[in-house]
Design a protein around this nucleic acid. Sequence first.
RNA 1: GCCAAAGUGGCGGAAUUGGUAGACGCGCUGGACUCAAAAUCCAGUCUGGCUUACCCCAGGUGAGGGUUCGAGUCCCUCCUUUGGUACCA
Length: 876
Amino acid sequence: MAYPFFDIETKWQKYWDDHETFKTDDSSPGPKAFILDMYPYPSGAGLHVGHPEGYTATDILSRYRRMKGYNVLHPIGWDAFGLPAERYAMQTNIHPRITTEQNISTFRRQIKMLGLSYDWSREINTTDPKYYKWTQWIFLQIYHSWFDPRSKKGRPIQTLIEELERQGTKGLISEEKFSAEEWKRKSKKEKHDFLANFRLAYIAEIPVNWCEALGTVLANEEVAEWTEKGYTVERRPMRQWMMRITAYAERLLEDTKELDWPASTLEQQRNWIGRSEGASIKFKVSSGAESHGARGAHSKLEVEVFTTRPDTIFGATYMVLAPEHPLASEITAAEKKKEVEEYVKQASMKSDLERGIEKEKTGVFTGGFVINPATNKEIPVWIADYVVMGYGTGAIMAVPGHDERDFAFAKEFQIPVVEVVSPKGSSTGGNVAHEAFTGDGALVNSANSDVSLNGLNAEEAKRKITQWLEKEKIGSGTVQYKLRDWLFSRQRYWGEPIPIIHLEDGTMKALSENELPLLLPDLKKFQPSGTTESPLALAAEWVNVVDQTSGMKGRRETNTMPQWAGSCWYYLRYLDPRNGNAFCSPELEKKWMPVDLYVGGAEHAVLHLLYARFWHKVLFDLGYVSTKEPFIKLRHQGIILGEDSRKMSKSRGNVVNPDEVVREYGADAMRLFEMFMGPLEEMKPWSTRGVEGVFRFLNRVWRLYVTEEGALDSAVKEMPVSPELELIFHTTVKKAGEDIECLHFNTAISQMMILVNELTKSDVRPRQILEPLVLLVAPFAPHLAEELWSKLGHKESLAHEPWPVYDESKLQKKTVEVVVQVNGKLRAKMTVALDTPEETLKKLALAESNVQAHLDGKQVVKEIIVKNRLVNFVVK
RNA sequence: GCCAAAGUGGCGGAAUUGGUAGACGCGCUGGACUCAAAAUCCAGUCUGGCUUACCCCAGGUGAGGGUUCGAGUCCCUCCUUUGGUACCA
């Protein structure tokens, strides 16, 4: 008969709840361990088997750390704003708050059913006004800050205002220049607009990814996710809130060095930030197409390009502007106007995605020319959509000889190709006629009266030409990032309102702290507003306000924050979840941060994890948190596939429901199986047989202690322990502990199975082994372990019992097996006393009959003897 | 295309610094218990050969080379799978 897992699990879950067994006391002794799960989005479908995988892993570590004397913080909460609840509301008109609450109850029930040892008193919910008050508060901190490039830090905007009042724009990088006096003479609106160029949160008119079906814009990072689901996304210029994450690009990149994260995730973050070194170079525009060939007739107009290959500048035979480039129309010759405008219009209707799909290069000649500053020759300016406005300067110098894209374009439009890098070892590099050469080599054809790069390799040439450009004041070495500013507003109802009022004089006013939280108004309908505004625009009473101080009329911001906002800082709220005066007290922040282990899905490798790092760095600069990184150690759980080794999906009918598994085999079996399947990070298929396997193991454990009648078995008693059993036991204690520390749960479990198999063989079972065995099992199968612990006569939960200690001396075997090889092939095994000297090993090895057979008639030329391990004879 | 990770029995997966490949589990085969079944327990299970024999021989960790007394592990080339990314100049 199977052990009564249902009764046991309900009993102990109630016990833990009633006794608040896992409530964290901030003042408890012991080193701190902040063990964090990525909190779930409570969807209507309930938990799937992927959730318990990561959650069980952190639960095992948490329970283990408690037994090792750590003060453990292990919280959970709900990432409950988001589009699915709102879409459901659009269809049913049921308020998202209601569906969200229902979904949370389901998730909470399911998570409790798994026996996860969360401190439920710290449960958080991003849609709770008491929570999102602080999301809004952090938004305002960001809004009220600017990035000072001199100290590379975010600082309060007030420090910028003071500096402007003191010395104008003297020490700043700013297009607009003015003195302190001029600043003071500026109107409120002028000052407001100027400061907006510096704030870390700002509004900009940018081409965004608008999804008509969803009625909202999407961040660049989100587009792929929704287009995969079949939604269409178009580009459209709109006024949107942005976060100046690009200001932090360098630090976000630099600090990845300090993170103990999966290599692939770090790589993805680095690629996303996309740092590249190169030079920006100014090209003077020739004064009109008529002057073609007439040197010196330069206009004042300049086009700046960014290139990572300034060394190839002598091979730049044309220039390309992005269709959106601001100088495109100015450069275009009168007779080409119509053609260019037509092309730009076509390009603007295509999304980035469509542009990418098209392999063929398209473009149009503007009729205008610029002067290549290295060769001093005129080169034609083209407009082509293979150059995008969002990166670099939106303009390139095209070097068809040494760039594949430029080469393809030049071939298409019969533009000359000039070789300036010759592959090493080949004197005639004529191959640039057929394909671009992008490798390193020796520079050729690269000299003017002032500077020569000929003969240099790429790196030397880059350095030399950059120096020359800087000397001539036509360019400089620069660093570019692929990272763009973060599109922060969404045209949605179910998100945090942005606490900003747009006043009738065109300025914005941020709410003050005591006006927070700015509550979401109740709506009767949740359909999109029909315009590009969010449904909030329809809540007239909420939207239209009068500013108390100035008496001006105003309109509240109707956009809401993206779902990422709440998750950018939730880990901090766990530290002090009921604090009404601060998002978190500084003392508690110092006590618990940083997060010691963070476990969650790899799908958040760039989005959540990058945004959270960004907010954390801003909070760090402003002095609200004490660590520059939030998550020191990160691990991902692998995806669990269906039993057929394919991705789980309703349409394939291979979805495993945790409720059913728990009903059939119990939560302990479910937990144990998910950990036994294989390494945490790997993708692996579900197996019902496998669950049965670990279920059998749990039953074997049960029967070691308990009779058919449910009483403690009389076979369990104090008795001498055989050295063999002792060895296995101490090995198990050691291995289980070490494996839990490095999250190798599958091997920890197999070792426990070995011990249990050994104990099963015998009719009498030493209590000195069985007691600690319960403690070893406890992190994995806590319900079963608690029940056995109480059957052994203990009155209290084992949650804080000390973890068993192994005895190093008991790990020493008295005898070891030594293998004998001849020419590296196994020929015999000998069991000998530990540390048998090498000479003796050799004698014993030579005495083995099979070894003799293989040595017969051969000459031993070498002997390799490794104590306690092997003897190898090399023969001829 | 580029970047990253990974390829081990019928299956999931183990294997310190290079030192007995296949731990543990599943499945399968045989046996015990049973009227029978389930459950449980015991034994076997990389492939091929030889054999009375769990004795021995040969091969074997995606493929091919290399280093070494010895390679799943280190190096080179290639193939495959998964994840990311894609005109980012």
